[in-house]
Each structure stands twice: as structure tokens, then as C-alpha cells.
Amino acid sequence: MISSFGPSRAEHRRGALLAAVACCLVGASFTANSVLGDYPHAGGQALRYGLACLLLLPLLGRGALAPLRLLTARQWARLALLAAVGMVGFNLAVLAAERTAEPAVPGVLVGCAPVVVAVVVPALDGRRPARAVVYGALLVAAGAMAVQGWGRTDAAGLLWSAAALAGEVGFAVIAVPLVRPLGARLLSTAACALAAVEAALLGAVLDGRAWLRMPDPAEAAALLWQAVVVTVIGFVCWYAAVHRIGAERATLLSGLIPVCAALTAPLVATGSYGWAQAGGSLLVGAGVVLGVRARHRRPAASGAQETTGAPGGVPAPERAAARRPAG
């Protein structure tokens, strides 16, 4: 039974662990991105998400696609928007920002996502933001900035970095009403399928026949890492975490992305880990602990509810937002 004060401590721990795994995988993948600079961007995303979808399908089990037939047109539109904004759009915005800005600039703005989500999600849910979550998000954002620093940029770099922030927030917020009816695995599979189609269409429009080519060995390894590890494992862990602790708490763990990126950068001689990174990592850790352990009282109308099964084998979310109709 989940009380009106939120999920149990065990659910908090499992959800936080799943979100941490997902974000650490994303952070460690930044080293793989460095070898994809010359590969067609939209085509690479189409390959990544298409392969991830194919790998996820066998994990669904017999009859697992049935919930898709029950989705309304508005829910399908939300799913397509999730793929366009939170997946394809986010990645293209980061790549566009890095044309005129140093990578730290979009990294710092994306690091503010926990603050935005900590305010937006409760507002959509009809409740006040939990102070501990907001304070934790501010610590995470400050820690992320300390880890990454600030680089050179221009107006275009700032605008694209802001777009990347919107994509990161959208990845967490847009999916909330879809998590319960689909479950973590089916939601990840359907989103990857739509993202692959959207990326392929965008690549064909923008790059013509050059939208896709055979990757060289290094590019193939990077694309496989992104598809198999970051997308298949990372996405399922992420949405399972959203089931358990809600989007605003799960997004706090995104502060681990720059930390893991900073920790792995010295391994491939693309960066260093010094006192600033260590101090920022401590701030991120403090913010995560403060925000994830916070418990909030739900609105009186929602009452207590039991944890029920959901497609994908993940308990139903404790958040009222995940129970309301999509749109």
C-alpha cells in the first residue's frame, strides 16, 4: 500500500537507483558522441532508435503491444511529441548548439532541467512544489555548472542550448501520462519507433540522399553503444524510475550526467577531473539526497491508493498526474 505521503522508502531507493543508472549511462556516452561529429546527425539518430526498437521488441512478451490499440488520438499525439521533442529534437538542439558554443554551454543549461521539472510537474498536477525537491534541484543545477564550467558562445549557441533544455524537460514531462497505460518497456519501444521514423523523414528532407551512409568501425561502435546501452537499458530504467518516484524526483538524478561525463573524460584524454569537478559532484550528490528523500502530501482528493501492476512489469506510479487523461 502506498500512503498519501508518497511511495515507501524501498520504492524511493529502487526508483532513485534506476534513475541513477539511466543518467550514468547517458553521461558515460558523451565520449562516444565525440566520434559521430562527421556522421549525418538525423541518419545516426534514425539508426540508433530503429535498432533500439528492434532490440526492445523481444523483451515485451506476447500480447504486450495490445495497450497501444487502446491509446486515444491525443495520447498518440503526445507519444509522437515525446519522440520529436525529447529525443530527436533534444539531440539535434545539442548538436546545433555545439556548432557555435563550447559543449559546457548546453550542458549547463540542460543541467537546469531539475529546477524546471520540480516546478512544472507539480503545477500540472495541481499541487505546490515540494520545497525540498526545489532546493535539491537548485543544488543539482549549481553542482552541474561547477562540474562543467562555462564556455564561449554566441546568441545562436544560447538559443539552441535553451532548446536543448526544453527537450530535456519535455522528455520527462510529456511522458508522465503515458507511463502507466504503457509501462516502461512498451513506452520506450513505441517512442523509439516513432523517433526513428521522425529522424529518417527529417534527414531525407534536410540532407537528401546523404542522410544515411555506412558508418566506419568507430562510428558503428558509438551507434551501437547509444542504441543498446543508452537507449534500451537507459530508457527502460528511466521510465521505471518515473513510475516509482515521479518525474520531478527522477530528473534530480540527471545531475549525474555531467558528473559521469567528467569522471570518464580522463579515460579517453578528452578532459580532466579536478577540484571544481569534485566540489560540483558533492553539490549534485547533496541535491539528489535532499530531493529524492523528500516526501510530499498529495491533494486530499487523490487519497491513498494501492500499487498495482502495469504493462512492462513495473508498479503503477504514485503520482496523480500519471492517472489523469493524456493531453
Rank of each mutant, 00 (worst) to 15 (best):
G37S: 04
C23V: 12
D38G: 15
P40M: 04
L51A: 15
G43H: 00
L25N: 06
L51V: 14
Y39R: 02
H41V: 11
L65T: 10
L54V: 14
N33P: 00
A32Y: 12
F30P: 01
R62H: 13
G44Q: 09
D38F: 07
L55C: 13
T31D: 01
L60W: 09
G37A: 08
L59D: 09
F30H: 08
S29L: 01
R62V: 12
G44M: 08
L57I: 13
A42L: 14
L59P: 08
P40Y: 05
H41R: 14
L56S: 11
L57H: 12
P58L: 01
G63S: 10
S34Y: 08
A66R: 15
L25A: 05
L36C: 07
G61H: 07
V35C: 06
P58T: 13
G50I: 11
T31Q: 07
V26A: 10
L47Q: 06
P58M: 09
Y49W: 15
L56I: 07
H41L: 15
R48M: 13
A66N: 09
L47W: 00
G50P: 09
S29Y: 02
R62Y: 09
G63H: 10
F30L: 07
L47G: 08
L25T: 03
S34K: 12
C53W: 15
V35K: 03
V21H: 06
S29C: 03
G50W: 04
V26R: 10
S34V: 14
L54K: 03
A42K: 01
L25H: 05
Y39T: 01
H41F: 07
F30E: 00
S29A: 15
L60R: 13
L59Q: 14
L47C: 10
Y39H: 03
L57D: 12
S29G: 12
G61N: 13
P58C: 06
T31I: 10
V35M: 05
R62G: 10
L56N: 12
R48H: 09
A46K: 04
Q45M: 15
